[in-house]
Design a protein around this nucleic acid. Structure first.
Length: 269
DNA sequence: TCGATCCTGTAG
DNA sequence: CTACAGGATCGA
C-alpha cells in the first residue's frame, strides 16, 4: 500500500485527527514490529505523552511526542496507521495500538509484519534519516539536480528511481508510471538518456506524485474511514498483457531487482 | 548486482 | 499447490 503519496496521506489524516491527543496506553501485540528495540520499552515510554507533531520524511512517518521523543513508523509493504473511534474495535491485523484520550485508538495494522515502529530521541532523528534521498515534492528537487544525479549512476532507470538514496519516496508503482509517462525504457541506465528526456522524467515524477497524494488522501478520507488501495489511474502497473494506452502494444512484465517492472516496449525507449 | 530474508495473505 | 505482493536490508 504505501509509497510516498500514501504515506503523505496517512500523515495528513493523522494531523487532522490525532494532533494534541494524549497517548494513554500503548500496547505492542507483535514484538517484531519494534525489533531490535524492545516492545515493552515503547509501551512504557509512549504512555502519557502527547502527540505534538506528525511529519513525513521519505516513507517514514515521524510522530513527535512530548518530552522530546519521536516515534518513527515505517509501513513497508502492508502497514497502515489510522485513528478509530474506539480502541477496543481494532481488527486482527493490528500489531500495535495506542489508546488516545476519550477512548479513541491509534492503530498500527500490518498483515505481513514487515513494518517497523521505532522510538528515537529527537536529537537522533537526523542521523537516523541521513541516508534518505531528496524529497521529490520539495523546492530543492529541480530538473538540474535530477539530471546531475542521474548522470552519476549506471543503474537501470527503474532501479535508480526506486533507490531511496537518490530520490526518496518512489516505489514499484510510481517509478514504473513515471517512466511510462516520460517514455523511457526501465532497463536503460539514465546515463544514456538525453537531458530533455530526463527533464520530462523529472516533470513526470512531480506531477504523478502530486496527483497521487490527492487521490490517496481522498481514498483515506472516504466514508469507510480508510481505504484499501487508492484510485490513482495506473497506465502500466499490474497491466501485463493489456494494451498500452498510447500505442496499443501489450504491456510487458520483467523482473528487475527482484521485483516486477511493467512497461511498454513499444513506446518506452 | 543478484539472491535470500523478514512474514502473511491472496489469486490462480 | 505455486507465484507473487505498492519495501528495505544484508551477505555473497
Amino acid at each position: 500500500m504505501p509509497e510516498l503519496p500514501e504515506v503523505e496521506a496517512v500523515c495528513r489524516k493523522l494531523r487532522a485527527q490525532a494532533l494534541g491527543a494524549q497517548i494513554v496506553t500503548a500496547r505492542v501485540l507483535r514484538p517484531s514490529v519494534t525489533a531490535p528495540q524492545s516492545a515493552r520499552t515503547l509501551e512504557k515510554k509512549a504512555a502519557g505523552r502527547t502527540i505534538e507533531a506528525v511529519r513525513r520524511r521519505a516513507k517514514n512517518i515521524l510522530i513527535d511526542l512530548s518530552g522530546g521523543l519521536t516515534m518513527r513508523v515505517h509501513l513497508r509493504m502492508t502497514g497502515n496507521l489510522y485513528v478509530i473511534p474506539d480502541v477496543r474495535f481494532h481488527n486482527h491485523f493490528t500489531r500495535a495500538w495506542f489508546e488516545l484520550g476519550g477512548g479513541r485508538g491509534l492503530i498500527y495494522e500490518d498483515s505481513r509484519v514487515l513494518g517497523k515502529i521505532h522510538l528515537h530521541p529527537g536529537s537522533e532523528i537526523d542521523s537516523v534519516l541521513k541516508g534518505a534521498g531528496i524529497e521529490p515534492l520539495s523546492e530543492e528537487f529541480t530538473p538540474e539536480w535530477f539530471i546531475a544525479r542521474a548522470r552519476k549512476s549506471r543503474q537501470p532507470a527503474k532501479l535508480f528511481l526506486m533507490d531511496q538514496k537518490h530520490v526518496a519516496g518512489l516505489g514499484n508503482i510510481y517509478a514504473a508510471e513515471a517512466l511510462w509517462l516520460a517514455k523511457i525504457d526501465p532497463r536503460k541506465p539514465l546515463t544514456r538518456v538525453s537531458a530533455p528526456r530526463l527533464t520530462a522524467l523529472h516533470a513526470a515524477i512531480v506531477s504523478i506524485l502530486r496527483d497521487a497524494v490527492e487521490s490517496a488522501y481522498i481514498a483515506y478520507t472516504s466514508p469507510s474511514g480508510f481505504a484499501e488501495g487508492d484510485s490513482f489511474p495506473v497506465e502500466v502497473y499490474d497491466r501485463e498483457g493489456e494494451p498500452c494506452r498510447r500505442c496499443q502494444r501489450p504491456i510487458r512484465r520483467i523482473p528487475q531487482g527482484g521485483r516486477s517492472t511493467y512497461f511498454c516496449s513499444g513506446c518506452q525507449k
